[in-house]
Amino acid sequence: MTATAPPRDRAPAGPPPAARSAPPLWRRVSDSGWAFLLPFLAVFAAFMGWPVVYGFWLSLTDSTLVRTGGDFVGLANYAEALGDPLMWQTLGNTAFFTLASTVPLVVLALVMAVLVHSGLPGQWLWRLSFFVPYLLPVATVGLVGQFMFNQEIGVLNQATGADVGWLSEDSVALWSIVIATVWWTVGFNFLLYLAALQSIPDHLYEAASIDGAGAWARLWSITLPQLSRITGVVLVLQLLSSLKVFDQIYLLMGNNPTDATRSILIYVYDTGFTGYRLGYGSALSYIFLAIVVAVALVQTWVGSRRNKGAAA
């Protein structure tokens, strides 16, 4: 067998190389699982494991960007965070953004996928329209958003005759960010739904059409029930990615988000990199990490309960 002609679907038939006696030590090491795992373990330990541990240590100190290795202060940072109104406000903003964006991001993706999957002419164009925004760098989303949301010359106000400060009014800005986010990222969920729709067996629809069920009845009695599993997946992925919102808020607000629009991650960034308080910023990160893990665990738990319920 030669390396240049890898067998595709049948066992290699070439002559075996010379028989080997007991392999030397370096050979045993290099042929073991550890050797395959080593590169991943190295980057994982250096850029995930260590920062997780080190970040936790930082959160127990009063380190700053100019003076790392600060003094150990115990849980003082956490105590301060719990009494910090800005942390609660930015957490509130994050929760609001997560709920307000997740609902349309799931529902609209579902609507788009069901419509496109119906096989209407123009498949290529529909997929392009809904998915292409997902490929845009966030810089583009920020600039185009600022341009369209602009109060004086923005196309939104000009076309509708409204006079809304889409990004400048505190009560509206977060909604505008939600709109931009839905436009930008719905394509990903749309594709997940589309893939799931393609795996619904045709015979279900054939049976329904023999029974005389119309399009509406087919949608409610076949399509939607068949999609309940994937909806769970889309929901988890969406909640987790919405909670982590940073980029689009930061750029839509012109690198300078107001307190009414700052997410918790932006607050972490501001604390650590503008305020130079690495210790306090790390403590905020860990509080947030606890929330993310809790959401993930609750989701897993709900998901497994529902699966059990379906199996029973």
Binding site: F47, P51, K244, L265, S282, L289
Partner: peptide, 23 residues
């Protein structure tokens, strides 16, 4: 190790910016 890898899926890299930068 595999369990550790699975658990790490839950950790958003965005949360590690401060220790990573310091590193």
């Amino acid at each position: 190790l595999f369990a550790l890898t699975i658990a790490a899926i839950m950790v958003p890299p965005q949360l590690l910016i401060i220790p990573l930068f310091d590193q």
